[in-house]
Structures are given as structure tokens and as C-alpha cells.
């Protein structure tokens, strides 16, 4: 079964700004993909289409066989920036309970789900803290727990590790790998191809159009073509394979 299907989708924000041009690709259930590409390439636009925040100009987008609008309660989402006031009177369990919005559940069932999601991400003991009182890595875990509370079938993450130190970043992706192992379909937008490649099965390169590659096929020529300038491969610290890319200096 396909989790995501895009057929000849074109989209943009005004008549003169075509961001995605006739893209087609599918994501099977249970896959773990990375969405990479240069700034302005259309990664966030693609996510907006999948979250029903933007309608394509042409073509069709399907999420779990439905329109993105109908499927949005079956999708968990972690935005790049969360606009929650750090002083807002909201404890972590309450934040996670918000994930159950729109589901017909009793208050007790919502609390149970929230607690289970918090334990799943390793924050089961954080009952009194607010979001602003957590470290960067813990904050992202709490937000993942909020997405998991709705028991989604797909998880969409937009640059989830931006601003995290390498240790927190690794812990976060280990958590995603664990969730993927439990059958969750995950699509993560990342600027850090070298970091995500050992975790994901496929890389979707977005630069107005898309190219889908299994991670083993990511040759330097493909990466350079994607970023529009010479790039050199980076040996990754975990797998030892040439998965990453960095600009060629000089």
C-alpha cells in the first residue's frame, strides 16, 4: 500500500513563482525517507501539500489513498519552528495530550495515550516541566511524542534537528529509527544529507523537480547536479560509506 503518492504535481505561491514543477513519486508504507535539496528547492512546499496547507496548481497528491485534507488526522507532523511561548502555562503532558485533538476520546484516554507517547520517547518522568524548560533535544522529543499521541500512520518532520548538537541529533535519529522499526512511515526534511543517509532507505532530492535514489546510489555527480555546484563526497562516521556532501572549496 502506498503511503504517499504525487502525480504530476506543480505548485507555487504566485503566478510567477513555480516552486514544484510536474513532480511524481510514491512512498510505500513503512519506508523511511529523507527529503533533501538546496534552500528554496521546494522541500517545505512539498510538506505543505502533504499537510493540506497548500493546494497544488496541477496534478494530484494522495496521502494514505485520500486527499491530504481527509488524511491529515492520520499524519503526525513536527514543524521546523514551533511558535509556543516558552512562558505559556502548558506542561509537557498537556502539550502531548494536544496531539489527540480531533479524536473522539475521553479525557482519561487522551491522558493515557499522552503518557504512553512520552514513555516511548523517554520523557515519561517530565510531568511538571514546560516546553521552554527542556533542552533542545528533549524539546524535539516532546514534540515527537505530541505527534505520536494521535497514533499516526505517517510522520512528517521538517528539519527536526536544526540547532541540536551532534549528540542530541544522533539520539533523535536513533529514536526515529526505533519508530520506523515499529512500522511507522517517516519522511524527514533535512539539510544534512551526510547525517541522515545511514538511517533512511531512500533520499528524495527536491530542486523544483525530484529525483528519488536509494541511499547507496548517491554518487557525487548526482549530488553536485542537485545542489547546482561542485560538491565532494563525505565519508560518514557511522557506515563508512560515501553518503554525504560538502561544497568544494576554492
Amino acid at each position: 500500500m502506498q503511503a504517499i503518492e504525487l502525480r504530476n504535481v506543480s505548485a507555487g505561491y504566485s503566478e510567477n513563482t513555480l516552486v514544484l514543477d510536474n513532480i511524481s513519486f510514491t512512498v510505500q508504507k513503512g519506508e523511511f525517507l529523507a527529503l533533501v535539496g538546496p534552500n528554496g528547492g521546494g522541500k517545505s512546499t512539498l510538506l505543505k501539500i502533504l499537510l493540506a496547507l497548500l493546494k497544488p496548481w496541477r496534478g494530484e497528491a494522495l496521502v494514505l489513498g485520500q486527499s491530504p485534507l481527509k488524511a491529515r488526522r492520520r499524519v503526525g507532523y513536527l514543524p521546523q519552528q514551533v511558535n509556543i511561548d516558552p512562558d505559556f502555562p502548558l506542561t509537557i503532558p498537556e502539550l502531548v495530550t494536544m496531539g489527540c485533538l480531533g479524536l473522539k476520546l475521553s479525557a482519561a484516554a487522551r491522558r493515557e495515550r499522552a503518557q504512553a507517547a512520552l514513555e516511548q520517547v523517554g520523557l515519561g518522568g517530565e510531568n511538571r516541566k514546560r516546553l521552554g524548560e527542556l533542552s533542545g533535544g528533549q524539546r524535539q522529543k516532546a514534540l515527537i511524542a505530541r505527534a505520536l499521541a494521535a497514533e499516526p500512520e505517517i510522520l512528517l518532520l521538517d528539519e527536526p534537528t536544526a540547532g541540536l548538537d551532534p549528540k542530541a541529533e544522533r539520539e533523535f535519529f536513533d529514536l526515529l529509527a526505533l519508530l520506523h522499526g515499529q512500522g511507522l512511515t517517516i519522511l524527514v526534511v533535512s539539510h544534512d544529507l551526510s547525517f541522515v543517509s545511514p538511517y533512511v532507505g531512500k533520499v528524495v532530492c527536491v530542486k523544483c523537480q525530484v529525483m528519488v535514489h536509494p541511499v547507496g546510489e548517491l554518487a557525487p555527480e548526482i549530488i553536485s547536479h542537485l545542489y547546482g555546484r561542485p560538491m565532494r563526497p563525505v565519508l560518514h562516521h557511522i557506515s563508512g560509506q560515501a553518503h554525504g556532501a560538502a561544497p568544494v572549496k576554492g
Binding site: L51, F88, G99, G102, A150
Partner: peptide, 19 residues
């Protein structure tokens, strides 16, 4: 309370959850 709390705390998330 749950709906008003969500709209006050994180409007974008509440909208994505169909509120």
C-alpha cells in the same frame, strides 16, 4: 478547554489537527 488551550498555545498545530 482542550480546544481553547490548543488555539491559545499553538494555533498552527491546532489547525493541522482539523480545528
Amino acid at each position: 478547554y482542550p480546544e481553547l488551550l490548543a488555539v491559545c498555545a499553538d494555533e498552527e498545530f491546532a489547525r493541522l489537527r482539523g480545528l
